[in-house]
Design a protein around this nucleic acid. Sequence first.
DNA 1: CTGGGGATGGGGCCC
DNA 2: CGGGCCCCATCCCCA
Length: 271
Amino acid sequence: MPRSFLVKKYFSSRKPYYRESQLESQTAFVPESFPRADLPTQNNSSALTCHPVKLLFFSVDNLPALPSPVTPVSLPPSPLGPLDLSSSPSSSGDEEEDGGRTSDPPSPDVIQNIYHCLHCSKTYSSLSALSHHQMSHHQIPSAVPLQQTPSLPTEVSARPAFHCKHCPKEYTSLGALKMHIRSHTLPCVCPTCGKAFSRPWLLRGHIRTHTGERPFACQHCNRAFADRSNLRAHLQTHSEVKKYQCSSCSRTFSRMSLLNKHTASGCCPAS
DNA sequence: CTGGGGATGGGGCCC
DNA sequence: CGGGCCCCATCCCCA
């Protein structure tokens, strides 16, 4: 479980999948505990919900163990009220992908106008707003890795570089960057427990943990798994010679992690 | 401590 | 270009 992660508010607008154009962020988030009954909207949870909701940051300390619908933790009321992370002085648009989040969860108090433009004195309440604003400075070499803009238009660079405004990562294609940004925005929200995911299929996999569905069956035994990767890992246990082999003692392991542990434990001091 | 299962994240590729 | 899927990797927990 991630040390900390974002929780988005769940809104049941029954949108099949994340479609930015059709969503508007609704709001009211219900911090964990996801008392669905208390949700501002009638939840209809059958459909996978995947939309760009605005989120709140919670540190692990505040979070309930999300995967389990239980453990309601009483989160501190959001200092943001109806969160409006993405709107800000000059932010028009541009909130699609981020809704104002950052990869490293800022403390909740970070939410007021605390995003300062390094190029001028303006401050914004959301990263997206700041980013949007900073576009106007994009001629200036960015001093911070916050831009999502291709660093090329004016200055030529050998290859395009699309920077994530939430973290230092950069990509050579806009598509890759957009995909990455979803890991910050987590647009896909589980209607059952409220947990948010970056991609619809991740959410689907998660939903199986609620439904108990296990579509991936092992042909060698009667076990079944909810995730193909786990089945694959399981299949290794049926194999005499496993996929991961210690280069020193030739012992094989079903998982890389087991081989790593083995190596770390001292079998292979050399490697 | 080791091995295995459960859950999840992310890049890449294909359609 | 975006959605969906594959594959790989990792972390946590439990027997």
